[in-house]
Write a protein that binds this DNA or RNA. Structure first.
Lengths: 149, 149
DNA sequence: TTGTAATAGTTGTTTTTGTAACTAACAACA
DNA sequence: TGTTGTTAGTTACAAAAACAACTATTACAA
């Protein structure tokens, strides 16, 4: 008979998903209703807003998103005139992406929402707790950096 | 000019999603390859395995899953002969769900995998960190219980 | 009673995602 | 050169999720 001291509510993949979903809900409703964006869209937007000009490949690497997701997000963002794509001169396969003024404005707007929402989210946690949470999450999000296998 | 001290990597909804995705990956490959299950499927399976007979409604409430998701998961699990459905005598709308012996076996198997995987996941964290993480996640997963709005 | 609202669960349709195959461009090396 | 392999990004198709409308049953109140 296997161990009985297992609870679903403490199983990390489950718990993490619950927390992630709950904590994304409100923010999601903002970028969705205000700009008709999908989750992939705002991620790309934020990457470009925060880190400047990037290629689709760069974004995929940083955000761990598959290239098809990014390709489609960029298409949508370009249609909305939030992003401009320019071919690289040296290597004509790669495309440089950057925000238009309109995209920049949307980014600034959503960043403020995000920032505000962040403080709301962490309200039930004291600052030590929040710090510990972030540190643990970073470790979980980047497993290879901490394992030996 | 808005605050510039905002980083995507520390934005909780983003970070939580990254951690959740990374930490679900390996476990997902097990229940997928071993039983052809979807995420919704193992969640329903685990609910029934851990808490005994439940209705679809119960599961939806506990797991915060939409009823259509559960309906279809139950269909799949019933096809696999992992779950048995019996109509309630009093209220003929409700259906009681429980695991068959075959379903029970699959649950026990996956529970062991989960338990083992859990220790692997928490390996890079010390026990205080793990505890803090769980407590914080529980708070984030159940916002209404901690807010005043 | 009977008409209205509510609830449990299902089904149908549309979006979104995942996966694989594809095009175009470059790299490296015989 | 040309041939093979690799890379950036797109497209096509299949799988899954989201959303809305539906059936069947119960609750409740005029």
């Amino acid at each position: 008979m296997p161990d009985d001291n297992f609870d679903l509510e403490t199983f990390l993949p489950y718990l993490l998903n619950q927390a992630a979903e709950a904590s994304s809900l409100e923010f999601q409703s903002v970028y969705k209703q205000r700009y008709g964006m999908l989750r992939t869209d705002w991620r790309v937007l934020f990457h470009l807003g925060l880190y400047g000009q990037l290629t689709a490949r760069d974004i995929g690497e940083r955000a761990k998103m598959h290239k098809t997701k990014i390709s489609r997000a960029v298409q949508r963002l370009a249609e909305m005139r939030f992003v401009i794509r320019t071919r690289d001169g040296q290597d004509r396969r790669v495309e440089h992406l950057r925000l238009t003024p309109k995209g920049q404005a949307a980014f600034e707007d959503l960043r403020q929402v995000a920032q505000h929402y962040e403080t709301e989210l962490t309200a039930p946690l004291d600052s030590a707790e929040t710090l510990a949470l972030r540190r643990a999450l970073v470790k979980l999000a980047n497993p290879q950096a901490h394992r030996f296998t």
